[in-house]
Design a protein around this nucleic acid. Structure first.
Lengths: 250, 250
DNA sequence: AAGTGGTCTAGACCACCAT
DNA sequence: TGGTGGTCTAGACCACTTA
């Protein structure tokens, strides 16, 4: 039953550029090529792999389209890394109505070691009961609290993570993942619902109990679609909106 | 102040393939190339424009990436058109929890000619008071009502649109736009919020008044980013979710 | 000036689809 | 069998950045 030799649409040999792409993805996943660093020049790669430069370019094209690499004419091709701007414009979709995007202020509410629920285990590729870290953050935009975040991190991937690290970081959380644990978030999956604020959340956001909130369940994925973080965001959308644009502006 | 000749990042002459892309976009926008039809073969286009085939392919690549064209090996390159699948998997983001995507049943609740509010005019590129059509739909998934849609269409773009057309159509609404009015929706912008059901909406969805609803404000855009439809969707997310995936699976 | 990515060419050959 | 898109090559030259 595992004979794929006659399956339509499944070529026996992948195109050369797909194979090169796979090898480059491995170089990224293994940490051989690190965030922010330049990868070898196209001419060098073409030499190393003994292929035409056009073929190398096609492989790189795919990784650029997937936002894993960034080309800069005259400078080189770089591994995408988490800086404030990337976070803001690529992963953060809550924006003030009639206003410009702003960086959220983050306050850590709680941090604890715990165990994965069945659902969490499924989403994180763990077994139920495996150790996880849980953190709770209050995010403010323009001075006012707007979002309550509940994060769940698989402990295996964040060995020795401490509350100090989490609270004391100067930049974004994804930046911490990247620099302290070598974990790059390259993609997210989000599921949205409307819900009502419970007493606790309402108090944090300065809302009456039962106020409508946008609930965002996010799974953050690293290279090879490995899940590295679960996040439940409860958003007060009285003065903010979630942006979703479908189809490239082109 | 309008001298752009020395602005950095704004080349005086666009690359050839960008110019070709622009011309092909025009062919799409003008209706010279119609949805579902094949465009001329790459070799023919290369001849017509007197460029190398690689340059033509690069231009087509861009339009394929923007979902305006679809390549099919051995058959040709086709103008993207609205069929049920495209609607479902590309533009429709409400899915049942733990279930497969399904086609919604649509029931027309009301249809009327009206005038654009200031906000609507701004979003549709009209003047306040310009004529619009308004329609209200009840969408059911798996037999149960889940979504109330309020549509606003600029009357100029839909000359002679009737309630009969709207109610009696056999396929999707975007299909009607395409076939009866030559309007292709190629992109959407959505803004999401949480809200509470008013009495009217609650009754339609079989919910108590004050139940939490997901409110989706959508602007549908045609070629050249021309807005052609506003839609407010009120979604009961008790058993459904809105899907937003950021970053291509690659 | 040296090194990088970006554009463009001209062609060979392959994989797939229709007939 | 003829036509289509898909892959790959080998090279020239351009645009941009850095030193």
């Amino acid at each position: 039953m595992s004979d794929t030799s006659t399956m339509p649409g499944v070529p026996l040999a992948a195109p050369l550029y797909k194979e090169l792409e796979r090898q480059m993805r491995d170089a990224l996943a293994s940490g051989e090529w690190k965030p922010g660093e330049a990868i070898p020049a196209e001419r060098r790669l073409a030499e190393r792999f003994n292929v035409s430069i056009g073929t190398i370019r096609k492989a790189i094209d795919e990784l650029v389209a997937a936002n894993l690499l960034i080309r800069q004419q005259g400078r080189g091709t770089f591994v995408a890394s988490h800086n404030r701007d990337r976070l803001l414009f690529y992963f953060f979709h809550v924006v003030p109505e009639n206003g410009a995007k702003a960086y959220p202020d983050v306050r850590l509410l709680s941090f604890a070691r715990s165990r994965a629920s069945g659902r969490e285990a499924g989403e994180l590729g763990l077994a139920a009961g495996d150790p996880v870290f849980r953190a709770r953050n209050l995010l403010s935009l323009g001075g006012a609290p707007v979002i309550v975040d509940e994060l769940t991190l698989p402990a295996v991937r964040f060995p020795g993570l401490t509350e100090r690290q989490f609270a004391g970081r100067s930049s974004t959380i994804y930046n911490l993942y990247q620099e302290a644990f070598g974990i790059s978030v390259v993609r997210t999956r989000e599921r949205l619902r409307a819900t009502l604020a419970d007493a606790d959340t309402a108090a944090l956001l300065g809302l009456p109990r039962g106020a409508p909130l946008l609930a965002i369940r996010r799974v953050a994925l690293s290279y090879n679609d490995v899940p590295v973080e679960l996040r439940l965001s409860l958003v007060d959308t009285a003065h903010h909106e979630y942006w979703a644009d479908i189809g490239a502006p082109g």
